[in-house]
Amino acid sequence: MDTIMDNTPQTEETPAEFAVAPPHKTRPGFLPIDTNTFDRCFISVVCFVAIHLLWMRFIESFIPLVMATVISLVLAVIIVRWG
């Protein structure tokens, strides 16, 4: 039973789980980390949802939700383009 361990690649230093993160091209932007396109889309979606939730909770009684959508979309474009 122990022999199979000898065959497996040694990954003690770098946990393999994070070594497989898809190796796409990343580039620096105004975001604090280097990101690829997928990351930036993901961040945009996360921000989109967060802005809408907070808007509904605190601001919607004054300003309609459409504004949140507009702001989120603008932010998304900024993030995807320059982030």
Binding site: I4, N7, T8, P9
Partner: peptide, 11 residues
Amino acid sequence: IWLMKGIMDGI
């Protein structure tokens, strides 16, 4: 899949 991938790559 994780466990087997390591083993498979070792064969």
